[in-house]
Lab assay of single mutants.
Amino acid sequence: TDVTFHVNGRNLHLKGADEELLRRIEELIRRGADIEELEKAVKEWEK
Rank of each mutant, 00 (worst) to 15 (best):
T1V: 14
T1L: 13
T1C: 11
T1P: 08
T1M: 13
T1S: 10
D2W: 12
D2E: 08
D2F: 06
V3T: 04
V3F: 15
V3L: 08
T4P: 01
T4Q: 05
T4G: 04
T4W: 08
T4C: 15
T4M: 07
F5S: 04
F5I: 15
F5T: 04
F5A: 04
H6K: 08
H6T: 12
H6S: 08
H6V: 14
H6R: 09
H6Q: 09
V7Y: 10
V7S: 02
V7K: 02
V7H: 04
V7W: 04
V7E: 03
N8Y: 04
N8M: 05
N8R: 06
N8G: 08
G9R: 01
G9A: 01
G9F: 03
R10T: 12
R10V: 14
R10A: 11
R10G: 11
R10P: 01
R10H: 15
N11Y: 15
N11F: 15
N11W: 15
N11S: 15
N11A: 15
N11G: 04
N11R: 10
N11K: 14
L12I: 07
L12F: 15
L12G: 00
L12E: 00
L12Y: 11
L12N: 00
L12R: 00
H13F: 11
H13T: 15
H13I: 14
H13L: 09
H13R: 09
L14A: 01
L14Y: 01
L14E: 00
K15C: 05
G16C: 07
G16Y: 06
G16V: 05
G16T: 06
G16I: 06
G16N: 14
A17V: 10
A17W: 05
A17I: 09
A17N: 03
D18Q: 08
D18G: 11
D18K: 06
D18N: 12
E19L: 11
E19D: 11
E19W: 14
E19H: 12
E20S: 13
E20T: 14
E20Q: 14
E20W: 15
L21Q: 03
L21I: 14
L21M: 07
L21Y: 01
L21R: 01
L21N: 01
L22G: 01
R23G: 07
R23S: 08
R23T: 08
R23H: 08
R24V: 07
R24D: 05
R24S: 08
R24L: 10
I25D: 00
I25Q: 00
I25V: 09
I25K: 00
I25G: 00
I25W: 01
I25E: 00
E26S: 13
E26Q: 13
E26N: 12
E26H: 13
E26M: 15
E27S: 14
E27F: 15
E27C: 15
E27V: 13
L28E: 03
L28C: 03
L28I: 03
L28G: 03
L28A: 06
L28K: 05
I29F: 10
I29N: 01
I29H: 04
I29Y: 09
I29C: 03
I29E: 00
I29K: 01
R30E: 07
R30F: 10
R30C: 09
R31L: 10
R31F: 09
R31M: 09
R31N: 09
G32C: 03
G32L: 04
G32R: 04
G32W: 02
G32Y: 03
A33W: 13
A33Q: 06
A33I: 05
D34K: 07
I35P: 01
I35H: 03
I35N: 02
I35Q: 02
I35S: 01
I35V: 06
E36Q: 06
E36I: 06
E36L: 07
E36A: 07
E36Y: 09
E36G: 07
E37D: 11
E37T: 10
E37K: 08
E37G: 07
E37A: 10
E37Q: 10
E37M: 12
L38N: 00
L38Q: 00
L38S: 00
L38E: 00
L38A: 02
L38K: 00
E39V: 12
E39F: 12
E39S: 06
E39I: 13
E39K: 07
K40L: 14
K40I: 13
K40A: 12
K40Q: 12
K40P: 01
K40W: 12
K40N: 11
A41F: 14
A41Q: 10
A41T: 11
A41V: 12
A41Y: 15
V42Q: 03
V42W: 03
V42L: 06
V42A: 06
V42R: 02
V42T: 03
V42D: 00
V42K: 03
K43R: 12
K43V: 11
K43F: 13
K43I: 11
E44P: 02
E44N: 12
E44R: 09
E44G: 09
E44W: 11
W45R: 04
E46D: 12
E46N: 14
K47I: 12
K47C: 07
K47H: 11
K47L: 14
K47Y: 12
K47G: 12
K47M: 13
K47V: 11
